[in-house]
């Protein structure tokens, strides 16, 4: 499954924004999208892990994508959402600034990852979607959740 998702394929994508950068996740990876809710932070874990939330009785870890990319953290807004994705360890939430849309991406709009990107971007993106003149990065979920090089950065 992981290998399958490493390569971007046409299909439905959830498009969301982090610090104005548009990113996308295949809808197959997304379990649900919920509003931001109280997060209990857990001490002594990676700082991009914001903490845990209660999702209908289950404790779910939440990753702050801004912090994951070393961007400046902002306070949560009305539009802030948590995208629940499924990982081999269970459900995990990703905090994003807003969810823009769910859209179908055609084969011809897909672009492979570009070499010019810096390492953190290369690590995180599987490819890109060209859409109305914008580039939407398709996230490599595995690398987002398990940063291999984050310690060096």
């Amino acid at each position: 499954m992981d290998e399958l998702l490493d390569k971007s394929r046409p299909g439905q994508y959830v498009v969301f924004a982090i610090n104005k950068q548009l990113c996308a996740l295949s809808i197959e990876e997304v379990m649900e999208i919920i509003r931001i809710q109280p997060i209990t932070d857990v001490p002594e874990v990676n700082d991009y892990i914001a903490g845990v939330i209660n999702l209908r009785g289950n404790i779910i870890p939440v990753v702050n994508l801004r912090k994951r990319y070393g961007m400046e953290a902002v306070s949560f807004q009305k539009k802030t959402r948590i995208i629940i994705v499924n990982d081999k360890t269970g459900d995990i939430g990703l905090i994003v600034d807003e969810v823009a849309m769910v859209t179908y991406v055609e084969e011809e709009n897909l672009e492979p990852p570009l070499d010019v990107f810096n390492s953190i971007e290369k690590e995180c993106f599987n490819g890109f979607v060209k859409r109305e003149g914008q580039l939407i990065g398709i996230l490599n979920l595995k690398n987002v959740l398990y940063p291999a090089i984050s310690k060096e950065v």
Binding site: P43, T89, G90, L145
Partner: peptide, 11 residues
Amino acid sequence: KPLGQYIGMPK
């Protein structure tokens, strides 16, 4: 409830 494998076992 366990914190889950992703978070691990903080001290």
